[in-house]
C-alpha cells in the first residue's frame, strides 16, 4: 500500500528532516509512527499525502509515485486519504457540522446523504450534540475529535493521523484508538504518529520508529 524507497526530505534552509527512509506498509494494517519531537513523523505523513515532495527517493501509495504527481492529480490522491493534521486545520468561520461536511462537498456528494454521514461521523467521536458549535467555542479535545470526524467522514481507504490523541483525556483517547481499530477492521490502512503507544497495544500494531530523521531499527 505504502512504500518508501531511499527517501530524503530536506526543507529549504534546513537539514535533512528525513534521510534514507525505506519501509513498506501493507494494506489493512495499523501502523504506529514513533519518535521524539522533531524526529520527522509529521514530515513522513505529509510525504504520503503529497503535501510535501521528497527531495530524493520515491514514495509510492497504491503503486503510484506520489512525489511525481502533477498538481492536477494530487486532489484525486487526497480524496482517498483521510488525514488528521497535527494542527487540525479546522475552519473557524463555520460550524462543527460544516467542517465535517467539507470533504463530502469537495467530492460532490449528494447533500441529503452527506448530512446523514456527517451526523454519523460526529456521533462516532462523541460530538453528536455539538454539531452547531463553532470550533472556536470548543475545547482542545473536542476540536481534535472534530478533526478526526472530518478525516473519516468520506470513508477513505487510507487514514493518516498526526498525534490524534494529544489533547484528549484517557477515556476519549481510548475511544479514538478503538475508532481507528474499527476502521482497520473494515480494511482501511491506518498510520498514526503518536507518543501514546500504549493506547494501541490491545490492537497489536506495526511500528515504525524515527530518530533524527532516520529509521531506528527496533524490535
Amino acid at each position: 500500500m505504502i512504500t518508501f524507497k531511499n527517501v530524503y526530505k530536506r526543507y529549504p534552509q534546513g537539514m535533512d528532516a528525513l534521510a534514507d527512509i525505506n519501509f513498506e506498509i501493507a494494506q489493512g494494517t495499523l501502523t504506529l509512527l514513533k519518535g521524539h519531537s522533531g524526529a520527522g513523523k509529521s514530515t513522513l505523513l505529509k510525504l504520503i499525502a503529497a503535501v510535501e515532495k521528497p527531495t530524493a527517493g520515491t514514495v509510492q501509495v497504491s503503486g503510484e509515485n506520489v512525489g511525481a504527481l502533477k498538481r492536477a492529480a494530487v486532489p484525486w490522491l487526497r480524496r482517498n486519504i483521510g488525514m488528521v493534521f497535527q494542527d487540525q486545520k479546522l475552519l473557524f468561520d463555520r460550524s462543527a457540522f460544516a467542517n465535517v461536511m467539507l470533504p463530502l462537498q469537495i467530492i460532490g456528494f449528494p447533500p441529503r446523504e452527506a448530512e446523514r454521514r456527517v451526523r454519523a461521523a460526529l456521533d462516532k467521536v462523541g460530538l453528536a450534540d455539538r454539531e452547531r458549535a463553532m470550533p472556536i467555542a470548543m475545547s482542545g479535545g473536542e476540536q481534535q475529535r472534530l478533526a478526526i470526524a472530518r478525516a473519516v467522514v468520506s470513508r477513505p481507504t487510507l487514514l493518516l493521523a498526526d498525534e490524534p490523541t494529544a489533547h484528549l483525556d484517557a477515556d476519549n483517547a481510548r475511544d479514538v484508538a478503538r475508532l481507528f481499530h474499527e476502521f482497520q477492521q473494515v480494511g482501511v490502512t491506518v498510520v498514526i504518529a503518536t507518543h501514546n503507544e500504549e493506547l494501541y497495544v490491545p490492537y497489536a500494531p506495526d511500528r515504525i520508529s524515527l530518530a533524527h530523521g532516520r529509521l531506528e531499527v527496533s524490535a
Binding site: 499525502a49 503535501v51 498538481r71 492536477a72 486532489p75 484525486w76 490522491l77 487526497r78 480524496r79 486519504i81 488525514m83 493534521f85 486545520k89 479546522l90 475552519l91 473557524f92 468561520d93 467539507l102 470533504p103 469537495i106 467530492i107 472530518r150
Partner: peptide, 16 residues
C-alpha cells in the same frame, strides 16, 4: 486563504 488551503488538503481541485 485558510479555506482554500484546507480545501486543497482535503482533495479539492483547482476547478472546485
Amino acid at each position: 486563504r485558510e479555506e482554500i488551503e484546507v480545501s486543497r488538503l482535503l482533495g479539492a481541485t483547482d476547478t472546485y
